[in-house]
């Protein structure tokens, strides 16, 4: 094949020369250190300590449950919400609601895929005790099959814990008088 060109075809110039420099010592040490460390790590960590991710996970869950009790605040003995009418709790409750609930119930609580919480119709009861149970434990798919309602809801004891659930309920009760203390 003939090639069209704009002048000399080859600008290769001199040949590349290769020096005889030695490996820098620190570099050789680093290479060896990496390999030695890896062998040591496998023996010590996996074989002697017997580390595995399942145990690490179980340990982290145990630590978590020790430091964070999910049920920090309880309902009053008569089943009503102790944080009702507490201005601070209501403000925090609104923030909680917009964080975790608004995606389904809309920021103002009037409902999207989740039911409207601002009217006087309640699928699972309108007392503090009934709502507390629903929010903490969630609505499982099994429950829906038995008693068809709008849809399932996650158990918020796992995400909020009782304190935040009660704050959120304080905000709801403040906005909607159809939610009764008992």
């Amino acid at each position: 094949m003939k090639f069209k060109d704009y002048g000399p075809n080859d600008f290769d110039g001199d040949e590349i020369k290769e020096g005889r420099g030695w490996l820098p010592q620190w570099w050789t040490l680093m290479l060896i250190a990496g390999i030695v460390f890896s062998v040591f790590f496998v023996i010590y960590y996996l074989m002697i300590l017997g580390w595995n991710s399942k145990e690490q996970y179980a340990q982290e869950i145990a630590d978590y449950q020790k430091t964070h009790t999910v049920v920090a605040v309880k309902l009053n003995d008569d089943g009503s919400n102790p944080l009702r009418a507490d201005a601070g709790a209501i403000a925090r409750g609104q923030k909680n609601f917009s964080g975790l609930c608004a995606a389904c119930h809309k920021a103002d609580g009037t409902g999207l895929v989740g039911p409207n919480l601002m009217d006087d119709q309640f699928l699972h009861g309108n007392t503090d005790a009934a709502m507390y149970a629903v929010i903490m434990e969630g609505i499982s798919v099994e429950q829906i099959k038995q008693k068809p309602s709008k849809g399932p809801m996650p158990a918020h004891k796992n995400s909020f814990g009782s304190q935040k659930v009660l704050e959120t309920m304080a905000w709801l009760a403040d906005k909607n008088s159809a939610i009764l203390p008992k």
């Binding site: 110039g13 590349i16 020369k17 020096g19 005889r20 030695w22």
Partner: peptide
């Protein structure tokens, strides 16, 4: 490894390093 020595017309520092770092 091509452009650096070609452009500067200087030898590559070390053929030894080339061999060892290539294979590793």
């Amino acid at each position: 490894y091509y452009y650096l020595p070609k452009h500067t017309r200087l030898p590559i520092f070390s053929h030894r390093i080339s061999i060892i770092h290539f294979w590793s």
